[in-house]
């Protein structure tokens, strides 16, 4: 599903240049649940941004579902993001003046789906994350866990190939973290490929594979025995 070879990325700050990713080789098959770990500054978020086409690599190749991702202009990148990827953020990034339902429907709006269809489909996804009764609420009327579930529903709405989650539990207490992880595992069980960036070991243990990053290179890539979040809920 995801295939990256010899990926390099450096940031220029003033006169000096910071080499963040120093040749990453990495692939993810369909249906995997992978966590990317590493201390702060190890380049894990940068990697995720490049995978999410929010940022571009300096060197190396990136193939997503057989499509080479290279030299995209912003219009094509936006279309690919919409079609291939769903994002889940640490700070939820819901649009504050839109209801939960409207937030979930947004990716479909950009796909040009008709309003009625869009709302129906968005409602289905909200139901899936257990928030059907909260569909008309604004984000600030929801708890952190609920917000993240709305964000997950939104990420799923466009039926993407890959879900990219950047510290999805970073702003949640451990109980809600496990609830969210339970939901993510459930979605993964349905066959969807998911990548999670995290620095929490217990969260990483709930995935099927852990990739460890340090100073811009992968130092460790192991399959793990998945811990089910269900038992903590």
């Amino acid at each position: 599903m995801i295939e990256i070879k010899d990926l390099h990325k450096s940031y220029k700050t003033g006169g000096s240049s910071l080499h963040v990713l120093k040749g990453i080789n990495f692939s993810v098959a369909e249906g995997e649940l992978v966590s990317i770990m590493g201390s702060s500054g190890s380049g894990k978020s940068t990697l995720l941004n490049i995978l999410g086409m929010l940022d571009e690599a300096d060197e190396g190749t990136y193939t997503l579902d057989g499509v080479p991702i290279k030299n995209l202009n912003e219009t094509v990148a936006a279309r690919y993001r919409n079609k291939f990827l769903g994002f889940i953020f640490q700070s939820f990034n819901l649009i504050s003046y839109k209801s939960a339902l409207d937030n979930v429907a947004l990716p479909l709006y950009y796909q040009g789906v008709k309003r009625k269809e869009r709302m129906e489909s968005a409602m289905n996804y909200l139901e899936k994350v257990g928030l059907k009764d909260w569909s008309s609420h604004l984000p600030n009327e929801l708890s952190g866990g609920q917000k993240q579930r709305v964000a997950i529903a939104r990420a799923l709405a466009s039926d993407p190939k890959v879900l990219l989650a950047d510290e999805p539990t970073g702003a949640l207490d451990s109980k809600t973290s496990y609830e969210v992880m339970d939901l993510i595992q459930e979605i993964n069980e349905e066959g969807r490929t998911i990548l999670i960036v995290t620095h929490e070991h217990d969260i990483a243990q709930m995935t099927k594979r852990i990739v460890n990053l340090k100073d811009g290179v992968i130092i460790d890539d192991t399959l793990v025995d998945q811990v089910k979040a269900q038992q903590y809920v």
Binding site: L54, E74, A78, K83, N93, Y110
Partner: peptide, 16 residues
């Protein structure tokens, strides 16, 4: 800015 970033992550093209 943040909201525009979200929209673009969700697939809003520059012309949108």
């Amino acid at each position: 800015t943040n909201e525009i970033g979200i929209r673009r992550a969700l697939g809003a093209g520059p012309w949108k």
